[in-house]
């Protein structure tokens, strides 16, 4: 059942690498935020799944609002001359680690429970 998401990841990767569109240098910041936001959402989704409180609306809306807010921050930073997008990068980075830690905890506890059952 983990095959389909992996296939999705692969398909996205293939499309991303075949697409030849030149991004203007000013928008590279925004792209990097989008990368982090999407990675964060994937890990957040997996974490929620393992904790049994998964909600598809929360996941997708979370991705879009997070990405939008981050893009807005980056834009505001550009206007103000402050690298505000770094704040978004920082938050996403921290969340990535937190999600990863949560996933690890859940998986480990699941594994232990299974052993005890056996």
């Amino acid at each position: 059942m983990w095959i389909l998401p992996l296939l999705g990841l692969l398909a996205g990767a293939v499309i991303g690498s075949t697409l030849t569109y030149e991004v203007p240098p000013t928008y590279i910041k925004y792209m990097s935020i989008a990368v982090l936001a999407s990675l964060d959402s994937v890990l957040g989704g997996v974490r929620a799944l393992l904790k049994n409180d998964f909600d598809s609306t929360v996941l997708l809306s979370g991705f879009f609002t997070n990405a939008l807010l981050a893009a807005l921050l980056a834009y505001l930073g550009d206007r103000l001359g402050v690298d505000l997008y770094l704040a978004a990068v920082f938050v996403f980075g921290v969340r990535l680690f937190q999600n990863l830690a949560n996933i690890r905890h859940s998986l480990l506890s699941q594994l232990r429970n299974n052993k005890q059952v056996k």
Partner: peptide
């Protein structure tokens, strides 16, 4: 989400 993440990443 995986699709989007893979796309943006590459």
């Amino acid at each position: 989400m995986c699709f989007i993440a893979g796309f943006f990443l590459t």
